[in-house]
Design a protein around this nucleic acid. Structure first.
Lengths: 178, 178
DNA sequence: CACAAGTTTCAATAATTATTGAAACTTGTG
DNA sequence: CACAAGTTTCAATAATTATTGAAACTTGTG
């Protein structure tokens, strides 16, 4: 189909960035951050310098309101930082670029939002007394206990990962599993 | 507020089940399975016997169509099995109750759907040649390389977890991290 | 303290995703 | 092969979630 030696015509850098932003947005949606949030993070990740709200609006073609709220959320998650410039009113933002740190931020937020809450609910439900002869009660109790065990293990693993230093992380975690 | 010795009035088993189904549904939504799917799985988990489509419809108060599609999806994910009864046309379903197996199923599905796809995209983009002097290119390339590294590590970790036998899992994984 | 430059809020609306339910289909039996 | 018992499909609709954009607000200066 393509008569040259290079079968895939090279993308321009701008196209590659756009594709990356798109891809990151799609997967972001898959792990519990909104698409716009993930895209904004992607844009900041591949930008060499800090960007203003205005820049974000333009480059992602989103409204001012959306840009404002999303950038605030990004700060909340710890995935971006403000960069203030002397003598300028306008705020600039840079991404957290250390991917281990990024992972940690996301784990922390999701653990709090979901796992911790689920554990509370499970603890309450698993404590329900009942008749050990009743198959309904037995099924309920067995399921709950198993899930609690998994939740406890996940909790501890995630807590460890969050505390992990880069060296610990790469040493224990990667070397063990790779 | 409560004058008896028991400050929280005990839930009935049915209420506890309902609450569990609700909670499981909420967290399910958080990790990429639909709420109805997660609820149906929860219901099957706490049911001592197999349930028919009819039972699922009634107990979750969802339509026949929804029940049919969701139960199919549950089979797809490997989170439930058909149980056929001799001389009956009607199909019954039981949950996969081994939580390690459940985790494995979910990891497998999500890895395929998201991580593998993302890796393909990253590999293509990270291969983009460019001018090492250009700060734009440098930022892009650094970000991509870092993410690739993380994606590679995650991939290997998840693959290991999926292959894990119960003994391996509880030995290495839990003992190491707890 | 008026104004310019920017930010935030939030009701209205658009976009997306999940659900219904009736019609079409399948399958096993007399 | 007609029928009963069940399952699946899918267009219409409902529910949910994300986005806009204009108005209100904030903040720093002359």
């Amino acid at each position: 189909m393509n008569p040259t030696d290079n079968p895939v015509p090279a993308l321009t850098l701008a196209q590659a960035k756009a594709q990356f932003i798109h891809t990151w947005g799609v997967s972001g949606a898959g792990w519990g951050v909104s698409k716009t949030l993930a895209q904004m993070h992607a844009l900041l990740l591949v930008s060499p310098g800090a960007l203003s709200t205005e820049d974000l609006m333009e480059q992602l073609t989103i409204s001012r309101g959306n840009a404002s709220m999303t950038v605030r959320e990004l700060l909340d998650w710890g995935l971006a930082y403000k960069e203030l410039r002397a003598g300028e009113r306008r705020e600039y933002f840079v991404a957290e670029k250390d991917m281990l740190q990024v992972t940690r931020c996301i784990i922390r937020a999701r653990k709090r939002r979901e796992l911790d809450q689920m554990k509370r609910s499970l603890d309450q439900l698993a404590a329900l007394p009942g008749d050990a002869q009743d198959p309904d009660y037995r099924a309920f109790h067995t399921a709950l206990t198993d899930i609690q065990q998994l939740a406890g293990a996940s909790d501890k693993l995630l807590t460890r990962l969050m505390q992990a230093e880069k060296s610990w992380f790469w040493d224990k975690f990667l070397k063990l599993f790779i």
